[in-house]
Amino acid sequence: MGAARAWSPEQVRALGVTTDVVTAGSVLGIGRTTAYRLVRDNQFPVPVRRVGARYLVAVAHLLHAVGIDS
C-alpha cells in the first residue's frame, strides 16, 4: 500500500453532504479494514448511519472531527 492520502479542507467539503465509511476513514487516517471494524464495534470516531446495505457519514461530522469549520 502507498502513503496515506492527505485531504485538504476543500477536498473534504467537495465530498458533498455524506460519504461512505471508507472515504470517511481515509479523511481520518483510518484504513478500510479498521474503519469497518470500528463501525462494527460502534467505535468509529464520528457518527455513522446505516442506510440499506451502506454506511454513511455526514461530511459535517468529518469537518468537525478534523478541526475544519463547516
Score class of each variant (00 low, 15 high):
15 L>T: 06
61 H>W: 08
67 G>Y: 00
18 T>N: 08
14 A>K: 14
66 V>E: 00
67 G>S: 05
58 A>V: 00
44 F>N: 03
56 L>P: 02
17 V>E: 12
49 R>N: 02
36 Y>F: 15
57 V>E: 03
15 L>K: 12
1 M>V: 01
41 D>C: 05
31 G>D: 14
23 T>A: 04
3 A>W: 10
20 D>G: 15
24 A>W: 13
13 R>Y: 09
63 L>I: 04
30 I>Q: 12
2 G>S: 06
36 Y>E: 07
38 L>Q: 09
2 G>M: 05
40 R>E: 06
59 V>E: 01
46 V>Q: 02
34 T>S: 03
15 L>W: 11
12 V>P: 02
17 V>K: 15
14 A>W: 08
1 M>N: 06
45 P>M: 03
50 R>V: 08
16 G>Y: 13
9 P>H: 09
68 I>H: 14
14 A>Y: 10
58 A>I: 00
68 I>R: 08
17 V>P: 02
48 V>F: 12
33 T>F: 13
21 V>K: 15
10 E>P: 01
51 V>Y: 09
7 W>Q: 04
22 V>H: 13
33 T>C: 01
17 V>C: 06
44 F>L: 05
69 D>F: 03
6 A>V: 07
28 L>F: 06
62 L>R: 14
62 L>F: 14
65 A>P: 00
45 P>N: 04
38 L>N: 05
